[in-house]
Design a protein around this nucleic acid. Sequence first.
DNA 1: TCCATTTATTTCGGTATTCTAACCAATTGG
DNA 2: CCAATTGGTTAGAATACCGAAATAAATGGA
Lengths: 175, 175
Amino acid sequence: MTNPPRQAPVGPPSAAASRHDRSESALVALRRILRATELNARLLATQTGLTTSQLIVLQIIAIDGKALPSTVARATRLTQATVTSLVDNLVRFQLVIRQRDTEDRRRIWIHATEKGRALLAESPDLLQDRFRMSFQDLDDWEQAMIIAALERVSALLDASTIDASPVLDTGDINR
Amino acid sequence: MTNPPRQAPVGPPSAAASRHDRSESALVALRRILRATELNARLLATQTGLTTSQLIVLQIIAIDGKALPSTVARATRLTQATVTSLVDNLVRFQLVIRQRDTEDRRRIWIHATEKGRALLAESPDLLQDRFRMSFQDLDDWEQAMIIAALERVSALLDASTIDASPVLDTGDINR
DNA sequence: TCCATTTATTTCGGTATTCTAACCAATTGG
DNA sequence: CCAATTGGTTAGAATACCGAAATAAATGGA
């Protein structure tokens, strides 16, 4: 997704060119957003001493305090095997524990430990916090505009993703 | 991650609550966008037979046809050592070649080969293409709104990133 | 009841990513 | 002319990630 930001052609803006340029402008801004958040994710990971993947898994588990490996795998689009090894590490760090379900003994619940919850609580997501603060300072109309625009973009992208999903699904079937 | 928008509290709408919910809406939309693009990146990688990192490096090299390892490292925020090993693979696949600079013989230019360029050309980024198409179908005012909003968000995030950079820098110094 | 199937997860073997530390080679500035 | 800097690579280790096979529990007929 860090695609070449193609150079905007120089010269007087023609109507046709401007249409093209506009979607390009949107994509450029989008890439910058992606980049900023990605860097933030890495920073957050190094701050907590975890890797990005480990952190994501821990976050998912912490949402409800516990989660099943299969759920985590689906949420992250990783295989269960991968989730297992990630959880192995989290267990080693004592951030989560595994516990068999008493009802259905095939299931294994991954619980966030006190330490795990503390780690998440104590490692503030600066980017998110600052975004929240700056955003709240904006005028009402601008807030509304941004939300509308983001949701529009999200819808456009989701639509494309759904279209592409057959390809993804065959991949899933193979598992 | 794809949580339902929290129910607005019953009773007289307090200004504070609505302000909070709004930045939350923005973040939710943002996360959905991130998710869609990330899945797309993975799909693209599997389609090309490359890994995400390899693909990104190849794309960067293909922008100008050639690039220096140091440039690639800076652009991706990877260490030079990592770039070296990624390029090793790309060389193995004959997608790029290394060539010493004749002026400054410390430098090594990584050139995209014909095969490398072809690979990029033949593997369309569906998400991007479809986004472009859908976007161009939107009304002018909506296009403008989206661009303005995305750039605003990008600016907000970039500002936060710059603020956080001292932390990053100490990390960099350690290398 | 019993067994074939399904469901949930782990184990194993292997490739790729990514880092740090140490290194080599070329350039540059006093 | 040599010490410091710059540009890259090598070596070694921890992880990430996957597919295939293994384990173990639940389930649904015959």
